[in-house]
Amino acid sequence: MKRFLLALAAGLVLFTSCEDESREISQKDIQDQQVNVDMSDFYTYTFDETDGRSALGGKSCHTMKVLNQKLENDPGLHQRMYNIERNVRQFIAAKKPDGAGGGNGGGSGDGGSDPVNDGLGTINIPVYVHVIYNSSIENISDAQINSQMNVLNADFNKSNSDQNLVPAEFAGLIANVDINFTLAGVTRKSSSKTSWGTRDDMKYASRGGVDAVTPESALNIWVCNIGGGILGYAQFPGGDPATDGVVISPQYFGTTGYVSVPFDKGRTATHEVGHYLNLRHIWGDGRCRQDDFVADTPSSDGPNYGCPAYPTVNCQSNDMTMNYMDYTNDACMQMFSEGQKARMRAIFAAGGARESFIL
Results as ranks from 00 to 15, higher is better:
105 G>N: 12
292 D>S: 13
78 H>I: 00
213 V>T: 14
200 D>E: 06
340 Q>K: 09
122 T>M: 04
262 P>S: 05
145 I>R: 02
305 Y>I: 12
71 L>A: 04
152 L>H: 07
220 N>T: 02
291 D>P: 00
120 L>Y: 05
329 N>F: 15
292 D>A: 12
205 A>Y: 00
139 N>M: 08
94 A>M: 05
123 I>A: 10
249 S>R: 07
337 S>W: 07
151 V>R: 13
73 N>L: 08
255 T>G: 10
136 S>A: 13
299 S>M: 11
156 F>A: 10
112 G>R: 10
126 P>W: 03
67 L>F: 01
140 I>R: 05
36 N>T: 04
278 N>F: 14
195 S>G: 05
76 G>W: 01
5 L>S: 12
70 K>R: 10
8 L>P: 00
61 C>V: 14
34 Q>I: 00
22 S>G: 15
240 D>L: 03
255 T>P: 04
127 V>R: 05
176 N>W: 09
175 A>T: 08
202 M>F: 01
170 F>V: 11
198 T>R: 09
152 L>G: 11
235 Q>A: 11
172 G>W: 01
215 P>Q: 09
206 S>C: 01
307 C>L: 05
172 G>I: 13
124 N>C: 00
183 L>M: 12
278 N>L: 03
267 R>P: 03
163 Q>G: 05
123 I>T: 11
71 L>R: 02
288 C>Q: 04
335 M>T: 11
255 T>A: 11
109 G>A: 02
344 M>L: 14
247 V>C: 09
357 F>E: 06
23 R>H: 07
102 G>F: 02
187 T>H: 06
74 D>H: 02
155 D>V: 08
29 D>L: 09
253 F>H: 10
100 A>L: 03
251 Q>S: 14
254 G>K: 04
44 T>H: 01
114 D>C: 13
173 L>Q: 13
254 G>F: 02
251 Q>C: 05
319 D>Q: 14
147 S>D: 03
28 K>T: 03
241 P>A: 07
214 T>H: 05
60 S>N: 15
128 Y>S: 08
176 N>Q: 07
315 C>A: 08
107 G>A: 06
69 Q>W: 08
40 S>C: 05
122 T>A: 09
180 N>E: 08
64 M>H: 10
224 C>F: 03
351 G>E: 05
50 T>Q: 13
176 N>P: 14
305 Y>P: 12
327 Y>K: 12
241 P>L: 08
299 S>F: 02
358 I>P: 02
